[in-house]
Design a protein around this nucleic acid. Structure first.
Lengths: 257, 257
DNA sequence: GCGACTTTGTGCCCCGGTTCACAAATGGCT
DNA sequence: AGCCATTTGTGAACCGGGGCACAAAGTCGC
């Protein structure tokens, strides 16, 4: 609903032979299957990588002496079914060792490579209100290959000021700023009324991935990925949960348990 | 993945007869089916309500002279399939008039009732960093029955200060503050290390719905609803999109298009 | 009053994801 | 060296949501 297109990612691995008696040499490249990776799996892979990094940073108690971690352990930490985790990882080929588990460091490296977490993708934030300013200072971004390089706004009172050490530029200079800093990802934290216009500007400036905090759907050309975070929607869903809990009658329908 | 439990909401409507020759009197209560409402449907209902409110506020061009709106129009605005929209609305019973469409005002009222949007659920925010402060000033909350009443933090430098017109209280006073203000929903914007502890405190204070911005999974008892917004995860997914686009090899697998 | 048109409500099929359960593979122990 | 315990990888069934297409129902025009 939030993302009309891209229900399934068109990623395919070259794939050639699965099993069969062909010598598993074949260039030494370990390939898995020809199946595209479901988006839900990609989301979980990101979670697995986060968990692995956290475990590694925290001394790695769940990781054995030999640096291995089992699917059960990792699944418990990530909050998913172990079988699902194994199937997810199988999209990247055989990463584990039967009877032992997964090599934590190796799995981390594989996931980083698969998810592009080793690359650096500069980020631009448009709309330096409270939320935009908060995101500009969020440490989780810069630390993980997503440095915030460009801040843009249309408010003359904000242009030229410094937020989180970066000078806010005029939205009209978006194209030049984004291209010179090689910005790949845009974050929209403007009011809803400006969101579509800003998206068009960002796309014209070469941005192909957008994180949108404004309500409403953005119309974007094919090939542009938009992820939406709707805070009001999240709270409304919690309100629904509360209303259901409190025994409040839903519309004409009566809650029966 | 984010919400291990509650894949399907246990809401059932009393139900009794669908069609059949029984006189449709039966108390005059229009009920629909005995099926529980899928969570995905609830999410979309929230979107429909947002769209309706926006249309009504904007003069209501898509709404006809008689105040009706068709499933096609509403679906286009919400970005969903018309059939899906009709099926979604059918969970609340017959809301539309065949050959005409839906009465915008009536549908809005029904959705508000079903989603609990007419109730007021006070909100507490824990962790007044950049993000928490930004949320405290977010106008989308208070305006929609979700007033922010309590701000909590553990930092002595923040306790006692005023954010968005509310004095920040000590997290140790959480129980008293939440109960006196009848807080139903908690928002966690603390660092990850404190998130679980804060969640426990909130739950002990009577909060049953939590919006968590900290990474990682929260362990909560049954009946507590947790929604997670992971900003780093969102950006990582966009990074994956970029890495796939740029032809970067995913792990050992080669992108083939 | 009747027919034609419009739009809702929904049965049915399809498809993708989740889960189960088991075979295959590996390491350790005797 | 051989057996057993352990854990991965995955085939297959299951499940639920999405979409199509059509019947039901209501309105409008004549």
């Amino acid at each position: 609903m939030c993302r009309p297109r891209f229900h399934r990612l068109p990623l395919k691995v070259t794939a050639i032979v699965v099993g069969s008696a062909t010598s598993d040499g074949l260039g030494g490249v370990s390939v898995s299957s020809a199946r595209p990776i479901p988006e839900a799996t990609v989301v979980r892979m990101t979670t697995y990588l986060q968990v692995l990094n956290r475990v590694a940073a925290g001394g790695g108690r769940p990781v054995g002496e030999d640096g291995t971690i089992s699917s059960d352990q990792l699944a418990a930490l990530a909050g998913v079914n172990p079988a699902k985790l194994r199937k997810d990882l199988s999209y990247l080929g055989s990463q584990g060792t039967r009877g032992v588990g997964y090599d934590a460091a190796g799995l981390t490296a594989t996931l980083e490579g698969a998810l592009g977490a080793r690359e650096v993708y500069p980020v631009a934030i448009v709309g330096l209100g409270h939320l935009g300013s908060a995101l500009a200072g969020y440490p989780g971004f810069s630390g993980r290959g997503l440095p915030i390089r460009v801040l843009l706004d249309a408010d003359p009172n904000k242009i030229g000021t410094s937020v989180a050490g970066i000078t806010v530029a005029d939205i009209r200079e978006a194209a030049a700023a984004c291209r010179s800093d090689n910005v790949a990802i845009g974050v929209i934290t403007t009011p809803e009324s400006a969101a579509q216009e800003v998206a068009d500007i960002l796309i014209a400036a070469g941005v192909r991935s957008i994180l949108n905090f404004a309500p409403g759907n953005l119309a974007v050309p094919d090939g542009v990925e938009v992820r939406r975070v709707d805070l009001a929607l999240e709270l409304n869903l919690l309100a629904f949960h509360e209303s259901r809990r409190s025994g409040h009658r839903a519309a004409d329908a009566v809650v029966s348990r």
